[in-house]
């Protein structure tokens, strides 16, 4: 069994093999792989015996279930109203400038992917962003640069 098969199998063991397990399994794969490949969706379909098209249709409904390859760290900058008013664009510029990528792109070293997202529920501390599951609030360009440097360092040490 290759790693994807093992991963899907383990997730199915954990969450069950009924239709209700689809989302937890998809989430489990995304947690490991960062995105859902064609292969992994086929494995899920096979493992819980539902049509592959349904897996795809379900996965693409949810914006946190990426179906395109992404970097190790997915940055999601909130673009909804309060964050937009409180300087989301400057945050975005700062990130783009630092990582040399545009929105929707991934750094060549596959470390970071930059995306926008809708309200994160931290409007009172806008602007806000998520890096994977970690939340960062009251952002300023300086603060963002610091945060990203932190991620780069951790990774460089690996």
């Amino acid at each position: 069994m290759d790693p994807i098969q093992t991963l899907v199998k383990n997730l199915a063991e954990k969450h069950g093999r009924s239709r209700e397990s689809v989302l937890p399994i998809l989430q489990g794969v995304v947690e490991q792989e960062k995105f859902l490949s064609e292969r992994s969706m086929i494995e899920i379909a096979r493992e819980i015996d539902i049509p592959a098209a349904d897996v795809y249709g379900t996965a693409t409904f949810y914006s946190f279930l990426e179906t395109k390859p992404t970097g190790q760290f997915i940055i999601r900058v909130c673009k909804t109203i309060t964050c937009a008013m409180k300087g989301k664009n400057q945050i975005l510029f700062a990130i783009e400038d630092m990582l040399k990528i545009g929105l929707g792109e991934t750094t060549p070293d596959k470390q970071f992917t930059l995306l926008e997202t809708n309200c994160l529920g931290w409007c009172h501390k806008a602007p806000a962003m998520l890096i994977n599951d970690e939340i960062y609030t009251e952002l300023t360009p300086e603060k963002v640069r610091e945060i990203l440097s932190g991620y780069m360092k951790v990774n460089a040490n690996h």
């Binding site: 109203i81 309060t82 809708n118 309200c119 529920g121 931290w122 409007c123």
Partner: peptide
């Protein structure tokens, strides 16, 4: 699911 923009009380 608290997704309404501007709502963060449930969290």
């Amino acid at each position: 699911d608290e997704g309404e923009p501007g709502t963060f009380k449930d969290r």
